[in-house]
Computed example of a mutant assay.
Amino acid sequence: MSPSFLEIPDLPMEMIMNYLDYLAIRSVSKTCWDLRNFIDNNKPGIGMKQVSIIQTSDTAVGLGISLPTFRLPEDAYIYLSYEKHENGCRITGPTSDGYKNKIVENLNFLDAVLHDFKIAINSQKLIFEKVIVTVNTFFEKFEEMMKLQKPFATESMEIHADSLEHARQIMHHADPTYLNFIDIHPPEVINIIETVKLESLKNIQNFFHFATASIHFENLDVETIRAIKENFLQFHEYDKYLRVLNKSNVKENLFIDAFGTASERSGETEQNWFFNVPDNNEKVLKVLIKWRYFEFQFVEKCEVPEGSVILD
């Protein structure tokens, strides 16, 4: 009698599975429990580039997956909408295998999309290029599902949430070892571009391990501005800078109260302050305030305009 396919040892079985893309692997996993358990334990295949879970309304959530494939010249994809239906859940949308449209009876649409999102992140052996999470009304249900999960590995993360606190909780599900970029979109957006070490103070969060970050500052005040400056002076990667963008005008008097009168003015829309950098005689910290943003940046001391005061 010929040996069964299921009797193939693990190593050659994984080598075979590595020739399948994600869609094919998911199909194989549905054939029998032995293959499903093997796939769950070994996570074979090429891996996904990006996964997103996006709430589009109170009764619909989208799931998107982008992945390489051997079967098509372009990347494979899945873009499905999980919608509340009177008899259960309607799942509809395009994929690289064709358009899907089915109704699963007696199934809650949130349970369905969260289950499939969980399968996607648990099926990934490699590092995601990007994970996108947009949650509003189902934040609690998302957190309940994720609390028993190991942090997933992704290079970047984009979060849309009703509040900064919700965004921070979602962010904690990513493994900080691999996370290089994070973009948080709360209702009122203020962005921080490039990393700065911010120690815990009021609502300041430590983003030291991020290469680029976006965060919302609530109730920006003099104490927070001074804390940013002091922590930035301890940050010795002098090619980094910090820019905070605001939908409304940055309040000039906050910086005057924090640092005193600006030492140099360039036109009517820009003010500058300069600070000595500890243990560095060639660099100074430049604080610049303009109409729509303020910025912290290291510059060469020779770039300080003549007559400007360098503060300690």
Rank of each mutant, 00 (worst) to 15 (best):
S4N: 00
F5D: 08
L6A: 02
E7V: 06
D10W: 01
E14K: 02
I16Q: 00
L20V: 01
D21Y: 03
L23F: 12
V28K: 03
C32D: 07
W33D: 05
F38P: 02
N41G: 11
K43R: 05
K43G: 02
G47F: 02
V51Y: 08
I53L: 12
S57T: 08
T59K: 12
G64I: 14
G64Q: 15
G64N: 14
S66R: 13
S66F: 10
S66V: 12
P68A: 05
F70M: 06
P73E: 14
E74N: 09
Y77W: 13
L80T: 01
S81T: 08
K84G: 03
S96H: 00
D97T: 13
Y99P: 02
N101A: 04
E105W: 02
L107A: 06
F109R: 03
F109P: 01
L114P: 00
I121K: 00
N122E: 00
S123N: 09
S123H: 01
V131I: 15
V131T: 07
V133D: 10
T134Q: 13
F138K: 03
F139V: 08
F139S: 09
E143Q: 15
E143A: 15
E143T: 14
M145G: 08
L148V: 12
K150V: 06
F152I: 01
T154M: 06
T154G: 09
E155N: 14
S156E: 06
E158M: 11
H160E: 13
D162P: 10
A167N: 07
R168K: 12
I170M: 07
M171Q: 04
T177Q: 15
T177S: 15
P187T: 08
I192E: 00
V196G: 10
K197F: 12
S200M: 15
I204Q: 14
N206H: 09
N206G: 05
T212L: 12
F217H: 01
F217A: 03
D221P: 06
E223F: 13
I225M: 04
R226T: 11
K229S: 03
E230A: 00
N231H: 04
L233C: 01
L233K: 04
Q234Y: 06
Q234A: 07
V244Y: 09
V244E: 05
V250H: 05
E252V: 11
L254G: 04
F255W: 14
F255Q: 07
G260P: 06
T261D: 15
T261W: 12
A262W: 04
S266V: 05
E268T: 10
E268D: 04
E268R: 07
T269Q: 11
E270R: 14
E270L: 15
E270V: 08
N272D: 13
W273E: 10
F275G: 09
F275P: 03
V277N: 03
D279P: 00
D279C: 05
N281M: 14
E282C: 13
V284N: 04
L285F: 02
K286W: 07
K286F: 06
L288D: 07
R292N: 10
Y293L: 02
F296N: 03
K301M: 05
V309D: 12
